[in-house]
Design a protein around this nucleic acid. Structure first.
Lengths: 208, 208
DNA sequence: TGTACATCAGTGAACGCGCGTTCACTGATGTAC
DNA sequence: TGTACATCAGTGAACGCGCGTTCACTGATGTAC
């Protein structure tokens, strides 16, 4: 690869990381172009070689989130075979919390700007979350078949689970590790509650 | 009452409303003291007669939210007698969506700053939401007794319900009224799912 | 009631500062011959 | 390979602007006698 474009790519990444880091404390909306440039160790004017303005940078951050979410899903699935539903749930939630800790800034952005940010920004984030819900919904259906069970409304169940896991999981960001264990338990309990509620108890269905 | 303090109170309310209105489009974090003052039609310097800084104003907004949430709860309870659980759920969620529409700006703030805002701000919001969860949890227990049912973990159920209703309900803010009906159905389905999962099917418990 | 003084919400000028953006530039890297 | 020119990521000065905050002030309202 070009030495020139290689260097450019590096600077771009520095900008993205700087924005990610700064946004985690004060929120993306409160960032200035100049402070991001400074944190990335370039002159403010060089910013424009990479992004038209802060909004465009923001959309790149959403892309980062998207890539990262897909990686999360892949990891969770990789180990999802030959397990009963209950330990799979537990395992997936642990994977998730781990991911949240490793990508704290990305995650804060994902949840923090879901409301309040610009329309474009908000829509882009919504799209990624919806995608995630669809994927989970398909996984739930597949699992149900494997376990000879039926789910009503796997779509609703998936949406409810994602909402719970993301929102409560976000609290992990403010907690010391030793308190995260209790959080995991809460999430696991609530997700199991949803799964139980989504299951068709065949006893009710078949007339005896 | 003092004519002077009466006037002062009016100006204070103007400041609060201005901040609420402005924050709904760009987020509270992005507001400047001067633009809030201008929207409230006072000189920037008069701001200091009411609040030490923007953070203090923010905490007053949280108070507004708190008052408003309590009013919501009271309304929902007022009509909660002599109804079966399913129509009560439906009714409560309708009350809630109505409330969200009427207090759109307060609600946007409540959800938007849950992440990302300053620590004080975030903690204050968390406290209000937790209070709400506790109240709902007690209501659920009371209802279960009335209906001769048992709930496991009414606390978890309440937390899951509040998370779902608030988060999905927030989407109502971006929707035209005719699309809100579908949203309500989604919320009702998901809440029922949680309630179903929380119910102890006595068949499982008693040994026949 | 009238008068003299105190209070205090709101004003307007002024300050230094960081902001986003423009512009002409530099100098290392890339390309054509 | 060497040379001459083109490209373009990053620079630094400069701009006008809105920011938060200070300060001495005004004038309506409140209070004491």
């Amino acid at each position: 690869m070009d030495k020139r474009s290689e260097q450019k790519a590096k600077t771009r990444i520095k900008l993205i990381n700087a924005a990610l880091e700064l946004s985690s404390t004060k929120g993306f909306a409160a960032l200035s172009l100049r402070e991001v440039a400074q944190a990335a160790e370039i002159a403010p004017t060089a910013f424009y070689r990479h992004f038209r303005d802060m909004e465009e940078l923001g959309l790149s951050l959403v892309d980062e989130i998207a890539v990262s979410l897909r990686r999360l899903l892949r990891n969770a699935r990789k180990n999802s075979e030959a397990k009963d539903l209950s330990s799979l749930t537990r395992f997936s939630i642990e994977t998730f919390i781990e991911y949240v800790n490793e990508n704290a800034n990305l995650f804060r952005l994902l949840l923090g700007e879901r409301q309040g940010a610009s329309d474009t920004f908000r829509a882009a984030l919504r799209k990624e979350i919806d995608l995630f819900v669809v994927e989970l919904s398909e996984d739930l259906d597949r699992l149900a078949v494997m376990q000879n069970q039926k789910l009503r409304h796997s779509g609703y169940a998936a949406e409810a689970i994602v909402t719970i896991v993301f929102t409560i999981g976000a609290e992990a960001l403010d907690l010391p590790p030793f308190k995260q264990e209790a959080l995991k338990i809460r999430i696991v309990e609530e997700v199991n509650m949803i799964l139980r509620g989504a299951r068709e108890t065949s006893r009710v269905k078949t007339k005896r």
